[in-house]
Design a binder for these strands. Sequence first.
DNA 1: CGCTACGTTGATCGCACTCAAGTATAGTGG
DNA 2: CCACTATACTTGAGTGCGATCAACGTAGCG
Lengths: 253, 253
Amino acid sequence: MSEATIKRRKTPLQPVDITPEMCSPAMRLQILGGVPFFSGLGAPDLEEINRLFREQGFQPREIIYFEEDSAEQFYVLAAGKAKLMRHTRTGKDVLLDLLRVGDYFGSLSSSPDETYTETAQAHTAVCTLTIGKDIFRSILSNRPEVALRVLEITTGRLAASQEMVRQLSAHPVKQRIAYILLKLADKFGQPRGKGVLIQTPLSRDELADMVGTTTESASRAISQLQKAGLIKTGRQWVSITNRQGLQAILAEY
Amino acid sequence: MSEATIKRRKTPLQPVDITPEMCSPAMRLQILGGVPFFSGLGAPDLEEINRLFREQGFQPREIIYFEEDSAEQFYVLAAGKAKLMRHTRTGKDVLLDLLRVGDYFGSLSSSPDETYTETAQAHTAVCTLTIGKDIFRSILSNRPEVALRVLEITTGRLAASQEMVRQLSAHPVKQRIAYILLKLADKFGQPRGKGVLIQTPLSRDELADMVGTTTESASRAISQLQKAGLIKTGRQWVSITNRQGLQAILAEY
DNA sequence: CGCTACGTTGATCGCACTCAAGTATAGTGG
DNA sequence: CCACTATACTTGAGTGCGATCAACGTAGCG
């Protein structure tokens, strides 16, 4: 109502991520330089590495690779957003992670007959920089400081995954939802009015798959949080209006 | 009843792990050589690295480090078994991993003000080889192939943790118990009679903490599996007598 | 102005948590 | 060798959270 006159569009999300060719050769260097484990490399090094990557575009919902596929490639997300997930035979999916530009995914195993342990799917339109895992490993071999950074990022993801295990083991749905919203706000949050908008399409279904519950239970939890005045939400979006209050939910007994 | 006359001791577990000093200088080289990411190094390299580690003993149940403590050390388990866990304010613990000889734990962050993300506790009597994380990082810097192996192991642990997230999200208690028993059998299993004994003390409580349930629910699940003839179990031990059958439980609808 | 996908809400059911006894095992000291 | 005790384990009864099933709003798109 107050929020700067949005009339045509009811969603506060940015119209599109755009990917006509964000993956343009000119952008690639800049993107690679922004990747956490390449930052710190000089321009010559970056250019050399850049030549080894090739680009690949994906439409929203398009699968980048499937769990159990032979794992050959290593990916860096150059534009858009992507999902990592696991499936279950009952059809219930688990959403492990949402990736943004600069995040890596895919394989970096040395074994030639490994398979991907998760499915990667384009969430918005996506452009990836792709490289054979063996070539990437040789890059790491020659640049120990990069290898150590990759190791550190992977260790951080392990810690995050273990924290999720703890959440699932010990906390009820409402707290888990509050937890994931705070985490998403940290990663995708954008100040918007007096709140922080999670700047990525986000259905109740996806939220549910992120915290191991059902669409309906996620919806009920979200409704409660909204009624409590902690968030605002609509179709495919959530905005956090009271971060303190949300954090207090986590500590509830 | 049939099982080769066990009369004095009712537990089939090996009496003790023993650690008078298994950490003896003579053993250290052998232990380090057996660590997955050091295997492949020559004797001179190993000896040089060996000199950088110091040994440390722990009694059963003794805490090696606490979650939230300042993270300074990197550990390799030289003798005994250890637990990694996370706590919750409600007192409910989550058991993330059980470690055996050769497993690493602790910190390898570059940041000086990181904290441990989990608690490490001696499960049996334990001896560790310990090194400052910065020193360990310098070892990795000089030996890319070791760094890549550590990265690979960490990636494997990430995949395992994500699989646990899936288990918690999608499967009921009985299936999760079956799953963890199979995993433990792979890591700690020893042929025993016509079954495979999980060779480590293992209470219902710990089992429960591994799959995010309560002691009572774990006990009920175990009872069911035993009645179904898939396992044998007693105070602090479990033996798998029908692996096929257990795996079939995982696929139940 | 439909149609479709997303979201909400209600009613019911069941799995697993909680609370509560009661049993069995292993180690301890007589 | 046998009580005795501490701890592990089991089982039952009751309850509640969240899953399921179902119906109905609602936003956005063609």
